[in-house]
Write a protein that binds this DNA or RNA. Structure first.
Lengths: 336, 336
DNA sequence: CAGACATACGAAAGCGTTTTCGCCGCCTGC
DNA sequence: GCAGGCGGCGAAAACGCTTTCGTATGTCTG
């Protein structure tokens, strides 16, 4: 392994000079700096990250908090897509991605401890239980964080435009002639609240009111709870003509309830999802949904995080909203 | 941040003693060791990973090489599932997961350089172009590696039982009465070769021969190439009654070719995939496929990797085969 | 030409660990 | 009573880098 010392000897200068030259201090004449950079290149020098980290307390590492109780983890298509975009962007900017866990060398620890242990420069938080105490501790620590789909007071986050998304989707459904529109939404989170706002806004504008029984809760990304919720809707005296779901994946659960009831989509009943994951396109007929721009979300999250890392003083917290796009699909029929 | 020095002072011993006690050297009396461990706990001591790494050259980090030209990356459901299992297992064993890229602090580098830079104890390699020179260099380096779905000479790998899998799947198709069976396989890799072996074995056992034109190549996880390959099969004078595909996802590409030709599955033509990803179940009718045990694959890969890391002398290279399971689905009709 | 002031570089300390080697005191066996 | 051995511990070096501060030149000014 070639070190600064080797380069220093070869160039006939001190290690201090080498370090400064390589890190672009103005302190060194351009001539020597150039010579040093060149020999470093020739000798295939790679800095020792541990030594540098020990000295500077910066690791050029971005931690990723990405977990959920159900262990769906990376197979959650929506979050996997965001994470992938984040990874690509981080690599482009010279940061590495490391997963934060609850284990340090076998010992149980908090996320914050782990992030500190690894000297993460910042942490990207996605798909977590945001009310978790360990998560809160991390967010309110000295380590820069960016959250996805949830905003803490005065902390930066990236969200998709949930109000507008659900609003547009609902408006589309209305434009197809539907009046009896049900909504199987996710558990009570800030995202859900926003989607409900968008949903009701569209209804109000169109002068439509729906009975409270049309609004039922299930859990995000949970087939079974969505199936049950859907079933309850189907037994209602006045059955809705269209059901909006919390997410595309959950719709699969709903589908079994629908086919059990002998209803075919979209002839007997219309449906729409949310997220716009790959799977939505593979369904037949293709699912009507609102596509979140996962690529932009991941990318912007990392950009913001790096901005905070590199300008800790001047960088202001920001709630970044990423617009999405309606995907008409073919599961909302035109009626009347 | 509390350091060994703080603990040493509090306990009235030297830092050397603290270090040894915490790392379980026999050199220290059980009494002092216990006292030190206890105060360390009380003071919420977490070792500084950089300092330790600098000294020992071991990082308790497992690198993951996970990339492909097409940037599908983590959204590749099959590999995402393997990676997720790997992550869970690594965390359980006290290792952290870091993505290996081609960038070091903004500079372009080889995978090996990156892995060295981060002092990865080992690297898990999945979903890569295995003929890539950079990958080879990493595999033949001093860093322990485990590959997924591909074996290099004398290096450890985890594979699903491809011969048996394709064999069973084909046998199943034959048992349903099919004789004209086509195979749209992936590009020419070791995995593909094995699947072809399994495919032909089943045919031979049943005394069936298929024309060469029934065997066409497409690319794994590539909708378009699969669509084209399928199209070519459909124009054949004697159309196959069943088509096997390289993977579940690719079938989506094939499906558009089928519906363009006005063929419905499984009434007009039967199909089967490979992988058994979540998506295969969400299709209607559910796809007949052979499910690889991604959870076991990821888990075993990490276990093997850690075994190599911790017993570099005694650990022998091993090709680990993980059995899978036939998923009958409903896309292969019974004929004749 | 003296003094002031940049400019270019080096010596050395220090980041928090681990690990070697040696010291001290005690025990054991003769 | 003494040599030799051993268990328990500490001093100090080392890992590779950054960074402060000091020094030695050269350059400019009046």
């Amino acid at each position: 392994m070639v070190t600064v010392k080797d380069i220093a000897e070869k160039c006939g200068v001190s290690t201090a000079t080498v370090s400064k030259a390589l890190n672009g201090y103005g302190d060194i004449s351009e001539k020597t700096a150039e010579r040093i950079r060149k020999t470093a290149e020739e000798m295939h020098y790679t800095p020792n990250v541990a030594a540098r980290q020990l000295k500077t307390n910066a690791s050029h590492t971005i931690g990723v908090l990405f977990e959920d109780e159900t262990n769906v983890g990376l197979t959650h298509e929506f979050f996997a897509a965001i994470l992938n975009a984040a990874k690509v962007q981080a690599e482009k900017e010279g940061y590495d991605i490391l997963f934060i866990s609850r284990n340090i060398a076998g010992r149980r620890a908090s996320f914050l401890e782990h992030a500190r242990y690894r000297s993460c420069d910042g942490v990207l938080i996605a798909n977590m239980n945001y009310s978790n105490e360990d998560v809160r501790k991390l967010i309110y620590s000295e380590i820069p964080t960016v959250t996805i789909d949830y905003t803490y007071n005065d902390h930066s986050s990236v969200l998709s435009a949930n109000v507008e998304g659900e609003y547009e989707l609902t408006k589309y459904v209305i434009s197809r002639g539907h009046r009896k529109i049900a909504f199987v939404h996710g558990e009570n989170t800030s995202v859900t609240k926003k989607r409900l706002i968008g949903f009701y806004r569209a209804l109000t504008e169109a002068g439509i009111t729906v009975p409270d029984r049309y609004i039922v809760e299930s859990r995000y990304h949970d087939l079974e709870s969505c199936r049950v919720a859907t079933q309850s809707l189907l037994t209602l005296p006045e059955r809705p003509t269209c059901i909006l779901f919390s997410d595309d994946y959950s719709y699969i659960g709903a589908r079994s309830a629908l086919s059990e009831a002998g209803l075919s989509v979209p002839d007997d009943i219309s449906v729409a999802g949310y997220d716009g994951i790959e799977m939505a396109k593979t369904l037949y007929p293709p699912l009507t949904t609102f596509a979140q721009d996962t690529e932009a979300m991941g990318k912007r999250a990392i950009q913001k995080l790096i901005e905070i890392i590199e300008n800790p003083k001047t960088c202001r917290p920001e709630e970044i909203e990423i617009p999405g796009k309606l995907v008409p699909g073919a599961t909302v029929s035109r009626i009347r």
